[in-house]
Design a protein around this nucleic acid. Structure first.
Lengths: 225, 225
DNA sequence: ACAAAAGTGTTGACCATACACCCATGC
DNA sequence: GCATGGGTGTATGGTCAACACTTTTGT
């Protein structure tokens, strides 16, 4: 006969990445735990799912409690079920990952901080595992899907796009001019006919992502690299 | 103040695909529901997670209750949280997808049947959504990851590999000879030096997947197409 | 004029596609 | 010999990486 679980705790944990394209830095948001276990450790921002709330709602809620931001990408990552041997309780953590731009993000809480991926502290629970998994997914998504355009403002320059890719995938993933021509050849970037003047240097063309032009490419094996 | 969920039901649902490479058919395993709601409808095989059981364990258990098979690939797909508006209960379904070969799979239960993806009945709950998501993931995985080698026996011919790809991705995804040379050029297929004689025609070389030779390619953007 | 940033062009190496062709076997 | 399935080769067009070059701006 089937035995149901006696007790179940449902939480959502977020791996929130922020890209500082200007200084080529990739951050993840960590919060300091106030209670035991792992009191004093840093960990991923998480929450218990509330009554009437969907998993995605909970993920967005965590994020908006910590950060104020306009453009972001968020998706479900993986569900970890941790069951202690002796205890009757199963802790379920539905993890999500999010990407947004550092320049645009305003931190709302004191106990939260951006950590560089290169200098992470020891994390609570299995959060390091979740983080690593999220980082892998982030890079994959960037290579195969147009998530960059969810994160950038509606109008953006090709250089901004390039810097975003550089920061996440590493400097030497591609030459700028080759990146340009590849992206433009796809045909889903529309020239907005406006330019942005940033002091010295030739003004940059502002582009816009055209989802309709992208649609036929969706579900195709496609590399943005 | 945070309000916890009052009641939580944790289940696992599987999208189990089987490839009949010989006749170019792709099946999914469905089971007939015996109870309400959706009594008499077909749906994905699922189960309640038991005490002391991990999510993955539960997924493997469903599979082994219905099918006897040697080689298979299984991974977590997505977690759906369905909350009825008025009810206090949240139904959590952690879905998985699996791939195996039809030829090798032995059905163990009466109430389960292989359905062709082209002629699916109306499914219970949101199982159609889960199935479609699983199918998408299956095709992606096949294009980007070496999951085919988990499903094939240890020694296989290049034609068997090709037929598997054809069945899942469609006939015209690639010419056989080009598929051959692309796969062999990667260098992770080892010639086993043994041949298989199938009556008429030249005997086929049996190959073996070499995970060590594949390792450096892992984490690279890579297309098997 | 010059520096800086944006954008274009060129080249050689590589790779995909389509197809023709050769090889080993059973009958 | 010949049909059948396995396996190799090749010509063409495209794509990619590297890098040189041009254009447009501010000072």
């Amino acid at each position: 006969m089937k035995k149901d679980l006696s007790d179940l705790r449902l939480g959502v944990d977020n791996v929130i990445f922020s890209v500082d394209a200007q200084f080529n830095r990739l951050f993840v948001l960590l919060v300091k735990r106030e209670q035991n276990p792992y009191k004093g450790y840093w960990g991923l921002p998480g929450t218990i799912v509330r009554k009437g709330e969907s998993l995605e709602d909970a993920a967005y809620r965590i994020l908006s409690e910590k950060i104020q931001v306009n453009n972001l990408y968020l998706e479900q990552l993986y569900t970890f079920g941790n069951q202690e041997q002796d205890s009757q309780v199963m802790y379920l953590s539905v993890s999500h990952f999010a990407l947004l731009r550092y320049e645009e993000a305003k931190l709302l809480e004191q106990d939260a901080a951006w950590y560089s991926l290169k200098e992470l502290p020891e994390l609570s629970f299995n959060h390091r595992e979740i983080l690593d998994y999220g980082y892998k997914r982030l890079r994959n998504k960037l290579e195969y899907s147009p998530i960059a355009f969810e994160v950038l403002p509606e109008l953006f320059t090709l250089n901004e796009l390039y810097q975003l890719y550089c920061t996440i995938l590493g400097e030497n993933f591609s030459d700028y001019s080759n990146f340009r021509s590849r992206l433009l050849k796809f045909g889903f970037l529309r020239d907005s006919k406006t330019k942005v003047y940033r002091g010295i240097g030739r003004p940059a063309t502002l582009y816009r992502f055209d989802p309709d032009a992208f649609a036929p490419l969706r579900d195709y094996p496609l590399l943005f690299i």
